[in-house]
C-alpha cells in the first residue's frame, strides 16, 4: 500500500476498528450455528466471545507490517464467517 506514514497509520487504525468489528460481528453470526445449545444461549455466548475476537484482531493489526495482508487476513474470514452464519441460520429455539 502506498502513502506516507501518516496515511498508513490512519489505514491501520481504521482496519483495527472497523475490520476488527466486522470480524467480531461475523464470528458472532457464525458461532451460534455451530454451538450445541439453545439458540439464545448460543447467541449470547458468541456475542460475549466476539469482543475477545475484536481485541485479538486489533492487536494483530498493530503487529503485522504488511497492510494488504492485514486487510485480507481480517476481511476474508469475516466474509466467510458471515456466509456460514447466514447459511446455517437457526430458526427455532
Amino acid at each position: 500500500m502506498t502513502g506516507g506514514p501518516g496515511q498508513r497509520l490512519a489505514v491501520r487504525v481504521l482496519l483495527a476498528v472497523f475490520a476488527g468489528y466486522a470480524l467480531a460481528s461475523a464470528f458472532a453470526m457464525a458461532l451460534p450455528s455451530l454451538l450445541p445449545m439453545p439458540r439464545a444461549q448460543a447467541v449470547l455466548t458468541a456475542t460475549l466471545l466476539g469482543f475477545v475476537v475484536h481485541l485479538v484482531a486489533a492487536l494483530w493489526v498493530f503487529t503485522k507490517p504488511d497492510l494488504r495482508r492485514v486487510a485480507a487476513g481480517l476481511l476474508l474470514p469475516a466474509v466467510l464467517l458471515t456466509a456460514l452464519g447466514l447459511a446455517l441460520q437457526r430458526t427455532g429455539a
Binding site: 467480531a24 458472532a28 453470526m29 451460534p32 447467541v43 456475542t47 460475549l48 469482543f51 437457526r90
Partner: peptide, 20 residues
Amino acid sequence: YTGIVFTATTYLPAGVWAHY
C-alpha cells in the same frame, strides 16, 4: 470486560440479527 457484558448485544448485535 464485565462492564461491556451488561449491554453486549447492543454493541455487537450481529449475532442476534443473524439468528432472529
